[in-house]
Design a binder for these strands. Sequence first.
RNA 1: GCUCCCAUCGUCUAGGGGUUAGGACACCACUCUUUCACAGUGAAAACACGAGUUCGAAUCUCGUUGGGAGCGCCA
Length: 486
Amino acid sequence: MTDTKKIRVRYAPSPTGYIHIGNLRTALYNYLFARHNGGEFILRIEDTDRTRYIEGAVENLIKTLEWTGLDYDEGPFKGGNYGPYFQSERLKIYKEHSDILLKKKKAYHCFCTPERLKALREEQQKQKLNQTKYDKHCLNLSDDEINEKISQGIPYVIRLNVNPEEKIKFNDYIRGEVEFSGELIDDQILVKSDGYPTYHLANVIDDYLMKVSHVIRGEEWLPSTPKHILLYEAFGWGTPVFAHLPLLLNPDRSKLSKRQGDVAVEDYRNKGYLKEALINFIALLGWSAGDDKEFYNFDELISAFSLDRVHKTGAIFDLEKLNWLNAEHLRKKSNNELIEMLRVGLKESKYSGLEFSDEYLRTVISAMRERVSFIKEFYEKGFYFFEEPDTYEDPGVRKGWKPHTPDILKKFAEKISAFENPTKEEFEIALLETATEMNIGKGNIVHPLRLAVSGVSGGPGIFDILSIIGKEKTINRINRIIEKLK
RNA sequence: GCUCCCAUCGUCUAGGGGUUAGGACACCACUCUUUCACAGUGAAAACACGAGUUCGAAUCUCGUUGGGAGCGCCA
């Protein structure tokens, strides 16, 4: 196997407890890129911050990822040839590699206390220096001094030794050539005093060892990419292709954040968004195939996706369009699929104690499917299919309810009593006859009748509603509204 | 503040030297429907600004302005 040319990408989240919607987009683009090109998609857990350990976060992350359908080829609980896939289990590897850097003098021990560092930063800020960065205070410690301090148990970190003279240039797949001056780059901490690597070190080592060909990540990493390049160079390794994705934005164009709405994938899941809609939507936030197609299923995305057509501008996460897409995807579902989904929703609703036949739900679905964007709307907008209306929408009452309306409705109730189990057509006949015999327009019956059976003034065709709820309930509800509006 | 990135309707975007600057969401109107929705039709809505290159810039170059991100023993 000529592994070297194989496309391998990774999604490398840190286990914060949930997946940020922006991270899902990053994961999706990695996934689509891999699948489109017959490459591999790796999941790696970046859990090197012990202070942020959250119980169950990884499981939750994987569960959410599974829900979205982004299946990975290598990763936690699945394995692969380049594991382990938890960074916390790769400490030995990082140690070996930081030793190499130390030996090559590309990195050095630093014994400065956090207090000194803080004071240094403040001093530099006060002097209005362009950049606050480490002053290489510990760079020239002799081997003896270093060993002495280590044996005394003085905590230390390992820093990258950056040559300020150097210019770092690289070619970003999405942005083209980007150049940084070495004098602005800090002597980045590579290994923390607890012995754990920082993101920068671990990320570079893992991407190299895992043979990652393309690093596709958010734009927020662009400024620290030179550090990573320097690291690849220090090890004498070639660099992967970097592709920095545009950010997902709040409505005020700042980076998408909690403060301004839901950012966790599970929030959207809990709100009843379809994974198909969410995936479709975020795929289009920063990428387009170049045509007018907007509705995609998963396979269509895989075949249409190309990194070349990812653009550079951040995109606002616009709920309106997501809602529309959700409705579109929902309407594409078969009745049987919708029955299943509706049953799940019903079980979590206030109607959980009630029993409904598939046949009943099917009729409700046909009546409502053009009117809903979410599953829950079947029983929220169409509550009158599941319970008696208790209140009556006010504009409907004021506009349609006249003094003689109760008589009209009573007449209609009489008419339908004559039928055993009236069909939609028979309900219609009953209404027609009522109108003729009382010499009134149909509207005088239709609207109050709708109000009586549903409590609201909008919804499916009146005869659809009547035939779904049936004769008994219709008559009961007519009597009830007459009583209530007396 | 410094570094880097970015700039087409309100939003997502197409278009990359010659276009009536196209589509979608949202909004509005009309049609259909005695309701609501769906659908259809239509309206309104954008190349941030200034120079330069060119016969000709939304498109190429530079600058300005604006926005964003990053500057941690977080990732």
